[in-house]
């Protein structure tokens, strides 16, 4: 897998050409894992040779253990990639120039057969800890959606709410009465999935359109948010995220 040779940052390229062999050998999994953990926790004191100046941080999770094995196998032969793996998820550190991290992650994802969710963020070496935290939160949100590659800009609204616990708490409380009634929750979810198209949402649920309208009015009565208003629908949607965003099976990086 090519990683940095298309880089626009000359330093990245030079550095990888000049000293790629200072990294522990691929077989020394434990040392390389420790190195990845050091970088991701922001404890890099600049003393490591052979490291790129910037990385794509990929947080991934899979529905099966085999899926995780497949991800690791896909990068296993690349001496530049650092891995911090868990049972059904982990982090990959891919040397990468700015603006190429999404393409890089997609290329990797395309080679995988099983259901894999990936969240990717790019950072220079000294900012890897915050990129890791971003990737983790993006992955938490993405894990409720279709498998694929996600970055911050795909999940901006939900991410903002997850990052503000007092807001998340208030929104979760607001949506609670809707979550407690399965038909209302299903209707709201379908309405959101169908981008506010009532006819399509009713078809998806196999209910009459007027039944759906009635349930959406109940949602409004319970939350004060009218689903047919775009702003209110966004609020309802991030409230659902705030109410139930799962933790993802990522290894501790700190």
């Amino acid at each position: 897998m090519t990683t940095v040779l298309h880089s626009r940052l000359l330093n990245d390229v030079l550095r990888d050409i000049l000293s790629p062999y200072d990294l522990p050998p691929v077989e020394d999994v434990t040392t390389r894992r420790q190195l990845a953990r050091t970088l991701l926790s922001g404890q890099d004191n600049g003393s490591f040779n052979g490291l790129a100046l910037a990385y794509a941080v990929v947080a991934f999770c899979t529905s099966t253990e085999d899926g995780a094995t497949e991800v690791l196998a896909a990068v296993g032969d690349n001496a530049d990639v650092l891995v911090l793996d868990g049972v059904r998820g982990g982090y990959l550190l891919l040397p990468c120039a700015q603006d190429q991290h999404v393409g890089l992650a997609r290329a990797l994802h395309d080679r995988l057969g099983s259901d894999v969710w990936m969240a990717v963020a790019w950072a220079s070496r000294r900012d890897l800890a915050s990129a890791r935290a971003t990737a983790e939160d993006v992955l938490r949100i993405a894990s409720c959606r279709a498998p694929g590659v996600y970055e911050l800009r795909n999940v901006l609204a939900d991410f903002a709410v997850l990052r503000q616990p007092h807001v998340a708490e208030r929104l979760a409380r607001m949506i609670e009465p809707v979550v407690a009634q399965q038909p209302l929750l299903d209707s709201l979810r379908a309405f959101i999935s169908e981008d506010g198209n009532r006819a399509a949402a009713a078809r998806r649920l196999d209910i009459h359109r007027s039944t759906l309208d009635h349930r959406l009015r109940l949602v409004e009565r319970l939350t004060g948010c009218r689903p047919t208003s775009p702003r209110a629908l966004l609020t309802l949607s991030v409230a659902l995220t705030a109410h139930s965003t799962p933790q993802v099976p990522l290894p501790r990086a700190y």
Partner: peptide, 10 residues
């Protein structure tokens, strides 16, 4: 305005 204030604070 919760959503906007969350965006503003992040």
């Amino acid at each position: 305005m919760l959503f906007e204030s969350a965006v503003l604070d992040t």
